[in-house]
Structures are given as structure tokens and as C-alpha cells.
Amino acid sequence: MQPFSRKRPSSALQAAAFMCRFVLPKPRFHLDLWLGFTVQNWVLDVGRPVVMLVLPADWFPLNRPAAADYLHFLYNITAPLILLKMLERSPRTPPLPAVHLCIVAVVMATSFHLVADSVTRRLLLIGYQLHVSVRENPVMKNLEPSSLVDAFELLFYYDDTLGHLMWYIPLFLILLLFFSGCFCPRSQEERMPSAAWMLLAPNAAYYWYLITEGQTFILFIFTFFAMTATVMHQRRRGMVPDSNGLFMLYSFSAALCLVAVWVAGLWNDPVLRKKHPGLIYVPQPRAVYTLYLGSEP
């Protein structure tokens, strides 16, 4: 009986090793997910001001949606769908009410941004300057009655403050939640595929745009610190980031370097300093454009 009882633990270990080797799925890079995420962001988000530059303003009546507004319509539809797909592929899915709350917040915030952004483009056609605060704009100083300035300040509050918080907090939470599931045992450690390296530059550049134009540096840096802490915690358990985790880490790191270069280049600008008087100084690209290059976004 003793020899038989001594062999049983060895058999159990062999069975466990067999299961880990052949049953556990090997991590794979979600090319379709990241490609859709990148294309959506560049075409439907960053592409809006580009479309306004290319197409003449008189092609669309001022009291009707312009081409950039239609791109915003599509973004409001595709962004929640892609975020839901991220949550579906994450092994750590939050409770369903929390998922619904995050998606509803994103839809509401992007709707705020759609309205405010559309009105802002009309204001730019009559001389509104993005590098100056609402109340100090020459257009607003000549507005009658003067109480209308308060209405425009409320509009920009919905866009720049409330809308951005409701939009970007769920976005970074979902990215962090997805990243928390992008780990594998050291034995399955792999490098990023060539497709991931090709998407790295445009994805990092979009994060730079998100930080600068959306003024989300605090949310971004806290998310990056949380990702770094997650990596350190998982390494103690013998886990390392898979190809998706490496892609997110490298994208965030490259975006942080781009932001540092951007801020350093505009560090001594007095006009932008007045526009962003707070402790964290991250100038907006559209404000830089209206200040130095033109009057349209």
C-alpha cells in the first residue's frame, strides 16, 4: 500500500502539468479589437477637425450639421460598442449594472461634446479664439445682452468639464480593467507580433491627442501608475504581461514621452500659460493652431 500511496501525488502533479500545457489557452493579440479601436479614434475623433479644414465652411448651412458632426454621430455609436467588446474579452468583467452605467455615461458625455463642438465650430467662423477664455474672447465682449456669456460658459462647462469627466473616466477604467486580464504565466511569455508594432505609433499618438486636447493628464497618469502597480503585483505571482498588455504599456509610455516633448516645446508661451493657469500645464492642440496657424480647428 505504501508504494501505491507515494505515487499518487506524482501522478497528480503530472496531470496538473498536462492540463496547464495543453488545456490553458495561449494568449493571443487581439488585432481586430485594437485595429478597430485605432481606426475609429483617428477617423471619427481626430479626423473631425481635419475634415473641417479640408471642406469649405460654406458647403454646409450654419444651422445644420456639418461633415464633422456626422463623424461625431458615428463615433457616439462605435465607441460604446468597442468598449463593450473590450469588456467581453476581459476575464475580469464587472457587474452588469456597472457596465451599463459606464456605457450610458460615455454616450451622454459624447453627446454633450457633439453639441458643444458643433457650436464651437460656428463660433470660430465669426472670430472666436480657442486660446482665450470664454469671457475674454473679443466675440463675447461685444455680445448683447452680456448675460449671454454665462450661457456660453455653461455650454463649455458641459463640454470641457462635465462631459470630459463622464467620457474619459469610464474609458480609462475600461482600459485598466482590460489590462488587468492581459497576463500569462512566465512559461507562456511572448513578444509583441509585428502587427502590434505597426499599431503602436498611431495608438500612442492618439493617447497624446486624448491627453492634450481632452485635458486628461491626471486620469492618464493615474491609469498608467495603476497599470505599473498591477505589473509589479502580478510578477510576484509569476505572471507577466502578454502581447496585449505589452502593447498597452508601450503605447502609454510612448504617449507620455510625446506629452513631455509637447509641454517642453511650449513651456515659455505666455498666451497659453494664461489659458492654462493651473499647476498642470498641457496646452491644447486646437488652441495652439488658432493662436499660430489660423482661425479654424
Rank of each mutant, 00 (worst) to 15 (best):
A196F: 03
P193G: 03
V271E: 15
L200S: 06
R191I: 08
R286Q: 14
P283K: 07
P283F: 06
L266N: 04
D269R: 08
G245C: 05
W208I: 01
T212Q: 07
L256T: 11
V240Q: 01
V240E: 01
Y292L: 07
A196K: 05
R273D: 10
V231M: 12
F225Q: 14
P202G: 01
Q215H: 13
L219C: 13
I211A: 06
L256K: 09
M227V: 14
T212S: 15
R186H: 01
R237I: 00
Q188F: 12
F217D: 09
M248N: 09
L199I: 10
L199V: 05
A196D: 09
F220I: 13
T228V: 14
M239R: 13
L246N: 02
D269C: 10
G214P: 07
N244P: 02
G214N: 08
R237A: 09
V288D: 01
L199E: 06
L219D: 13
Y289W: 07
I221G: 09
L266G: 01
L256G: 12
Y209H: 07
L199K: 00
L249S: 02
V288W: 03
L246I: 00
G278C: 08
M198P: 01
F247Y: 07
Q234P: 02
W197I: 00
R186V: 11
A196S: 04
R235K: 14
R273C: 06
S187G: 05
L266H: 06
M232Y: 14
D269K: 10
S251V: 09
T228M: 13
F252S: 11
H276K: 15
M198Y: 00
A226L: 12
V288L: 04
A229T: 03
Y289A: 05
N268W: 12
D269E: 15
A260Y: 11
M248E: 09
S194E: 10
R191A: 08
R191E: 11
Y289F: 10
W262C: 00
Q234Y: 09
P283M: 07
M192H: 09
K274F: 09
P285Y: 05
R191D: 06
W267A: 00
F225W: 14
V240C: 01
L291D: 10
N203T: 11
S251R: 07
Y289E: 00
W197H: 09
R186E: 12
Q284A: 15
A196M: 08
T223F: 00
M198F: 02
P202S: 02
R237D: 06
V282S: 02
P277A: 05
T223C: 10
I221R: 13
P193Y: 01
G214M: 04
L219F: 14
N244D: 12
S187M: 09
L272E: 12
N268L: 13
F222H: 10
T223W: 05
E190I: 07
W267H: 04
T223M: 02
Y207S: 08
M239D: 00
A226G: 09
L249E: 12
T223L: 01
P193E: 07
V261L: 15
P277Y: 03
P193D: 00
P277L: 03
M227R: 06
S194V: 14
C257R: 08
E190S: 08
M198R: 03
M232K: 14
V263L: 07
N203A: 03
T223R: 03
N268R: 13
A196T: 05
G278V: 14
C257P: 03
